[in-house]
Write a protein that binds this DNA or RNA. Structure first.
Lengths: 154, 154
DNA sequence: CGGATATATCTCAGTTCTGTGATTTTGGAA
DNA sequence: TTCCAAAATCACAGAACTGAGATATATCCG
């Protein structure tokens, strides 16, 4: 077993444990938002607008990593539920703002704290310091992979 | 900003960077298997059979974290491509084995090394020691989250 | 101005699964 | 044996997007 093989195996192992950790935590997050009739992608849009205020759909797309067709679909669905609305953008008439309605704001104020608790519970397998460490490592890992990726940015 | 809030924010941050790192690396892995006309889920089934030998579809399901309906779909597709076949299971006649065909074996021997390289490249943002560290942290994180999860195991 | 190119969104067919429920078989209890 | 819960798979409907192309603006360059 030479060094290159070891490096390959370590890389594959890292990819596997990353996938499994992601899947396990995603199930918790998903189960939480499902109680309110939301998918994780829908919640992601709501959360972006909740914390970032009204923004163009393109900006929502960059924050949520969904395709343009997906944003149209998600905003349509959330608009049908009365939680998000489109507003025209006078500055650039190609663009459309998405914004939370009053109902959407109220809904997020209601469900966000519980969602945060669910996530906190899901990641409680690591102590505080290890969480900080994991954040630094994952940030590095993600940034580097995104830069290597033509679609990912940079 | 009290301690509980800090803990919540750290948890959410961890979930965000985990999601982004996962998505960024997944794109690399996906781009690689797509060159051979495979989805990541299909590749996951092939890989399980490549490294684990013939096994029941239920065992494949446990390894790949796909639903039972998904396994049927994936094995159907791979069988249509001639890379996987179903075999009857005499020990338990409710079950069906899935196994790589000779073509499937050859295909995996051809594409697996390159796939491993692609993953290695994607995770090269971390040095060896940090990869080892990340593996330990993510294993802990994933295991704990899976145990908390009614669907996840334990 | 006119044309070329880039950007923001939408449309829509198609892909990839998920989730529920039916079917078949097993193994144990009555 | 006969019944019954549990287990493995399959069938089917449909959810949740993706990706390519269409449309409407915007911007830049002669």
């Amino acid at each position: 077993m030479n060094e290159a093989t070891d490096g390959t195996e370590r890389s594959l192992k890292l990819w596997v444990v990353l996938s499994r950790a992601h899947a396990a935590i995603e199930r918790h997050a998903q189960a939480d938002v499902a109680r309110h009739g939301l998918t994780l992608a829908e919640f992601g849009v709501m959360e972006a607008l909740f914390h970032g205020g009204p923004m163009t759909q393109g900006e929502v797309q960059r924050k949520t990593l969904v395709t343009s067709g997906g944003i149209t679909y998600l905003v349509d669905r959330l608009a049908a539920k009365g939680w998000v609305e489109r507003r025209r953008c006078d500055r650039d008439r190609r663009a459309t703002y998405a914004a939370l309605t009053d109902d959407g704001q109220a809904k997020m104020r209601e469900i966000f704290p519980r969602h945060a608790e669910a996530v906190q519970h899901a990641v409680s397998g690591l102590r505080e310091e290890d969480q900080e460490l994991a954040i630094r490592l994952l940030r590095s890992l993600g940034r580097h992979a995104a830069e290597l990726n033509p679609r990912g940015g940079a």
